[in-house]
Nucleic acid binder design. Structure first.
Length: 433
RNA sequence: GGAGAGGUGGCAGAGUGGUCUAUUGCGGCGGUCUUGAAAACCGCUUCGGCGGUAACGCCGACGGGGGUUCGAAUCCCUCCCUCUCCGCCA
């Protein structure tokens, strides 16, 4: 959520920054200012009336204590309708407040100055490239072929269980997935200094609102029902990313200055409806309804945000470096950034079987946007309460990492060699047919 | 799921319709005293909003929401959560 004071004081600046996203959200600013004005006018009135009521009520109390009952009764009838007026105005305040809130929750974050202007993914500049595209003396197979040949994933049976977009890992495939999870967690916890957490996989609506997934993108997530009670449907949602529960851990708290930065790392499955995405990358493991991911979350002081953002990006890149994968880092342009973000880097790993780069990580600085939505604050040394900045990054998404790993390290004999750092986890140096 | 007990400030814990501000204790911060510290004593110690250049003034919040009343932490309704016991269960 944006700061209402910023909208009041610099509406044109806000409109201009929002326009850079190209979604037309800037037209909401006028409405917000209008509703805000109504709210403030009604609030000033209601507070004046309440001040009067408080004063008179105290006088009545004093009169009754002195046993001047008739006088007290007279004052009561005098002020009887005050309550009705207050109730009426309070309804106005409430309505304009929730109206303002509703609009505010639909406004995306403002892009940072450092973010390149652009409209689509075509406009995202490459920040750097690591390694180069490997060359093979044979035609590299796609992961679908490799998975079938090596019996790592049973696509057909997964579909039998849950429909398309689900994976059934088998044999070495299941072990590889588990090894990767363990490898990633150990790397971030032991070497990068994150604290591991393992959150609930179902969360209440307020958590999705907190990170900015609701109310605007409600159609993309799975709601769950308990038993056959239709009323329970939508009370809980399957998490689309560990960011949702983990970023909300300290919601409605006031953290101590000394607690920051908070660094969390979590492995969770992620569930996404991907409505409307049918046909796009549906074959194989590239776009699925359930996948595993290790997520990094930081809660930092505003002045630490840029440095911590770069550190998080480096932490995610380290994963691909250790696994011997070629990748590039791109910065998302103003038109391609996520709703809550002020600045986002994507890491795209090379998948030789696809002959394309796959997004395996998105590392975002969300500024104070999520902290406002969650009412998460910290107390500065001078005793002031401020909103911290919240960062999140994948470290990394698993299904696509799995794809890149198989396709990159496939051998002429049909086997897949396992990079050295992963061998202790998988307890083998190669997977053979 | 059933029965009972609870939810008040950082923590503990009073407060069953009104006297000026939600007692009090602990912890924390500042001060006095001291070479320094402890003790003692004094003071301060939640969050949000509105108005004002400011000093300051006002409004709201006692788990959430609604109601009764001139006036609600207190009475009523409703929802949520915690604890104890029972049932079911990996």
């Amino acid at each position: 959520m944006l700061d209402i004071k910023l909208i009041r004081e610099r509406p044109d600046y806000v409109r201009e920054r929002l326009a850079l996203r190209g979604a037309g959200d800037e037209i909401l600013i006028g409405k917000i200012l209008q509703v805000d004005e109504v709210r403030r006018a009604a609030l000033a009135q209601v507070e004046a009336l309440k001040a009067t009521r408080n004063r008179v009520s105290k006088e009545i109390g004093a009169l009754m204590a002195q046993k001047k009952l008739e006088e007290a009764e007279a004052r009561k009838t005098e002020t009887r309708e005050l309550g009705d007026q207050i109730a009426l105005l309070e309804r106005q305040v409430g309505e304009s407040e929730s109206g303002r809130e509703e609009l505010m929750l639909r406004l995306p974050n403002l892009p940072d100055d450092a973010v390149p202007r652009g409209k689509t993914a075509e406009d995202n500049p490459v920040v750097r490239t690591h390694g180069s595209q490997p060359v093979y003396c044979f035609k590299p197979a796609s992961h679908v072929e490799l998975c079938e040949r090596l019996k790592l994933v049973d696509f057909a049976r997964a579909a039998k269980l849950s429909g398309s977009g689900f994976l059934l890992y088998t044999h070495w495939g299941a072990r590889l997935e588990r090894a990767l999870i363990q490898f990633l967690l150990d790397l971030h916890v032991d070497e990068h200094g994150y604290t591991e957490v393992s959150p609930p996989l179902m969360v209440g609506e307020h958590c999705l609102v907190g990170v900015g997934q609701f109310p605007k993108f409600k159609d993309q997530y799975y709601g769950v029902a308990e038993g056959d009670n239709p009323q329970a449907l939508g009370k809980l949602y399957l998490i689309p990313t560990a960011e949702t529960p983990v970023a909300n851990i300290h919601r409605e708290e006031i953290l101590k200055d000394s607690q920051l930065p908070v660094n969390y790392c979590a492995y969770t499955p992620c569930f996404r409806g991907e409505a409307g995405a049918a046909g796009v990358g549906t074959r194989g493991m590239i776009r699925v309804h359930q996948f595993d991911k290790v997520e990094l979350i930081k809660i930092v002081k505003p002045e630490q945000a840029d440095v911590e953002h770069e550190k998080m990006l480096a932490n995610a890149e380290r994963v691909l470096q250790l696994l011997g994968l070629h990748y590039r880092v791109i910065m998302l342009c103003t038109g391609d950034m996520g709703f809550a973000s002020v600045k986002t880097y994507d890491i795209e790993v090379w998948a030789p079987g696809q002959a394309s780069y796959l997004e395996v990580s998105s590392v975002s600085n969300c500024g104070d946007f999520q902290a406002r939505r969650m009412n998460l604050r910290f107390k500065t040394e001078s005793g002031e309460n401020k909103f911290p900045h919240v960062l999140n990054g994948s470290g990394t998404a698993l299904a696509r990492l799995f794809v890149a790993l198989l396709e990159t390290h496939q051998q002429a004999d049909g086997s897949v060699s396992i990079p050295l750092p992963l061998q202790p986890y998988l307890k083998t140096d190669s997977i053979r047919p």
